[in-house]
């Protein structure tokens, strides 16, 4: 299957690959997996005191579309408030990357990952 130019761009030059210390209180970590293909994704956000996402990093072990979805998402969430970040939909990612129907689940994985990261951060902040 041919990947779109945007998927290839993110796949060949992924943005924000890496990790933060998951025990840092300002860091939220979201880990998700796609049981149908065994892809795994870790997405982390670093949140400042104003509740704005200052930085984001990811590690995705999966297909090009899964890597591109998480790479794009880390770019998008930077500078957004947590509330704004929760409003990002998988369909926005799929549209931007022109994902074919069989790869939509990769964008769903990315949306689940950011939601999980935000939930993790909020749980830590509330604790």
């Amino acid at each position: 299957m041919a990947y779109s130019a945007k998927v290839l761009d993110h796949y060949e030059n992924p943005r924000n690959v890496g990790s933060f210390d998951k025990d840092d209180r300002s860091v939220g970590t979201g880990m998700v997996g796609a049981p149908s293909c065994g892809d795994v994704m870790k997405l982390q956000i670093k949140v400042n005191e104003e509740g704005v996402i200052e930085d984001a990093k990811f590690k995705t072990y999966g297909c090009g579309s899964a890597i591109a979805s998480s790479s794009l998402l880390t770019e998008w969430v930077k500078g957004k408030t947590l509330e704004e970040a929760t409003r990002i939909k998988n369909s926005d990612i799929a549209e931007e990357l022109a994902l074919p129907p069989v790869k939509i689940h990769c964008s769903v994985l990315a949306e689940d990952a950011i939601k999980a990261a935000i939930a993790d951060y909020q749980k830590k902040a509330g604790a």
């Binding site: 880990m31 998700v32 997996g33 049981p35 149908s36 795994v40 870790k42 590690k59 072990y61 689940d112 999980a116």
Partner: peptide
């Protein structure tokens, strides 16, 4: 129907999988 199951496994399991994939990398 296993295809209907979309839930992620527990975080500890995923963390271990990610560690393994990092080691492979």
């Amino acid at each position: 129907d296993p295809r209907q199951a979309d839930s992620s496994p527990d975080p500890a399991f995923l963390a271990r999988q990610i560690e393994w994939r990092e080691t492979l990398e």
